[in-house]
Design a protein around this nucleic acid. Structure first.
Lengths: 219, 219
DNA sequence: GCACACTAGATCGTATACGATTTGATGTAC
DNA sequence: GTACATCAAATCGTATACGATCTAGTGTGC
């Protein structure tokens, strides 16, 4: 056995939460998952407590675990956290962004632009995830990288439950990506890159707030 | 029983790592800790895996856990992470900083100043921790708050192993705290507060780099 | 003397079992 | 009909046990 059962359990439950198979509020019963995996409850329990630490599940002693409920406040808090960390990760990664990197990022954004013409929001969302992953992928600080990845996983879990959709924001998003790529191409300072990345995330957050008719002060 | 045994185990091991009783590299043997706590290995194992997720312990399958080794790179990565998150947390907390809050923060910084006169580095460090905790304590975003607290716990664990000491930086630190408090007192914008807090953290980081004769580019 | 195979002890990983706790339903008093 | 006590089913928390795996030490061939 090369991977432990608790790892398998973690991967399974994690994947199902992130892709939406387990919706927010879904009750995670240890015995049920253990039966499905053909193992005992101990490794399942361990996996679930790890997911709790990540914020993907809510856990109550002697009661059990459920997939974390998503409300607008939680969504905004997650967006806000990413708005802090992703720009920093991007700026730190800047020095590692070479021509090959730029070409791939540019290609992803070009594909996103095509999705706009083709009215394909599903592919657009997928490409957007990839683009952002590309942005921070070269971050040399593993702690910061880990935080960004966890944040995006949470965001993915929330979006899988079709909680958000801001269609009219898509086109502006592509342009902001492009602006960011130009800054990287001309070797702008890390600070400039960070600011541009933060502006991008803040704009997305504000677009959501506006759509939901929420006051920016709620966060 | 009001708290579970895994919570007790987590609290015990965590405390010992943070206060330095368990030094980096210390071998955490499940059975030994279980015996000491008078419980079985299962809850201890759970506690240790949680500490692993926090980055305080290093864990290898089928081999066991050790307290995370601290090297300068790890230390710098942790400092860098805090340099991103703590200023954001402070800026977000700004609106909740009232007169009572200011009075307490000012008092802490005044005590730090007195420690300088009295040449009491131990008390100074303790007060510094309290001051920073006060800075981000009112942060309304629980995710960001959690990240800052974890970062400081890691830093505390590293410092407990007397890895760092930058005496000549102390006085400047107090002045930077004071500057930050003035900005808060006059209700400066969140952005200004964030920038000042970040400058403070960046200066601390650079002071360490200079003392260690390291090039800032190492990070 | 060095490299490699082997063995024994230590330690981990997880199955099983059972007591503890919670929850929701049922029954009873008012 | 409402409030509260009671009880049973579901589920969790952890002790115990044992097989699996790693590590270090020993021995053997060269």
């Amino acid at each position: 056995m090369t991977t432990s059962k608790s790892e398998v359990a973690y991967a399974l439950v994690s994947e199902r939460i992130v892709n939406g198979a387990y919706s927010p509020g879904y009750r995670l019963v240890l015995g049920t998952i253990a039966d499905e995996l053909g193992c005992s409850v101990v490794p399942v329990r361990e996996a679930i407590r790890r997911l709790e630490a990540e914020g993907l599940v809510h856990f109550t002693r002697n009661v059990g675990a459920t997939v974390a409920q998503v409300d607008s406040t939680l969504y905004l808090h997650t967006m806000q956290t990413l708005a802090v960390i992703e720009p920093a990760a991007t700026a730190l990664a800047a020095s590692a962004m070479d021509e090959a990197w730029l070409a791939k990022a540019q290609d992803l954004n070009d594909q996103m632009r095509q999705c706009l013409e083709a009215f394909d929001p599903v592919a657009f969302t997928e490409l957007n995830n990839e683009f952002h992953q590309q942005l921070y992928s070269q971050c040399p600080n593993p702690h910061i990288l880990d935080l960004v990845q966890r944040g995006w996983r949470r965001l993915a879990a929330m979006r899988a439950s079709s909680f958000t959709h801001i269609p009219h924001r898509a086109r502006q998003s592509v342009e902001e990506h492009q602006h960011l790529l130009e800054l990287i191409r001309v070797h702008a300072s890390p600070r400039e890159i960070e600011e541009a990345a933060r502006a991008h995330r803040t704009n997305t957050l504000n677009a959501y707030l506006a759509q939901a008719n929420m006051d920016p002060s709620v966060i």
